[in-house]
């Protein structure tokens, strides 16, 4: 299961990029996408919305289940991926790329797991 080195991870299986120009990009991990199964519906926060780390800010629905999307960082949502709303299968096909979910303006990232820590959390071999 792919766990890119350059990302940071929440225990709720979201990933965040390093902060660039005050913004981090957020998505869900390949592990989470695989565990969910085929994603069929994504509800994202709205641009301009203030989200708080650890709180629910959306929903991800697969053929089998529904999961809350938790904000891994606090801040203002500055962009959402409308392509993934139109085609939720992007979350499965490219969770770290075209399947990104939203961008948040933050000062710094909270204390999150690095790739090794996340691998340990999910018991990934690679």
């Amino acid at each position: 299961m792919s766990v890119p080195e350059n990302l940071r991870y929440s225990e709720e299986h979201e990933w965040c990029t390093a902060v660039e120009d005050g913004v981090t990009t957020i998505g869900i991990t390949a592990h989470a996408a695989t565990a969910l199964g085929d994603v069929v519906y994504v509800q994202l926060p709205e641009v301009g919305q203030q989200i708080a780390a650890g709180e629910s800010c959306g929903e991800i629905e697969s053929t089998k289940s529904v999961s809350d999307l938790f904000a891994p960082a606090s801040g203002e949502v500055v962009a959402v991926n409308t392509a993934v709303v139109d085609d939720p299968s992007l979350v499965n096909d490219d969770p770290y790329g075209e399947g990104w979910l939203f961008r948040v303006r933050v000062d710094t990232l909270p204390d999150l797991l690095d790739a090794a820590g996340y691998r340990a959390l999910v018991g990934a071999d690679d």
Binding site: E12, I28, A32, A35, L36, S67, D68, F70, V122
Partner: peptide
């Protein structure tokens, strides 16, 4: 993601 996802494919 909520916790029920964790380990679901294990």
């Amino acid at each position: 993601m909520s916790e029920d996802v964790s380990g679901a494919d294990t």
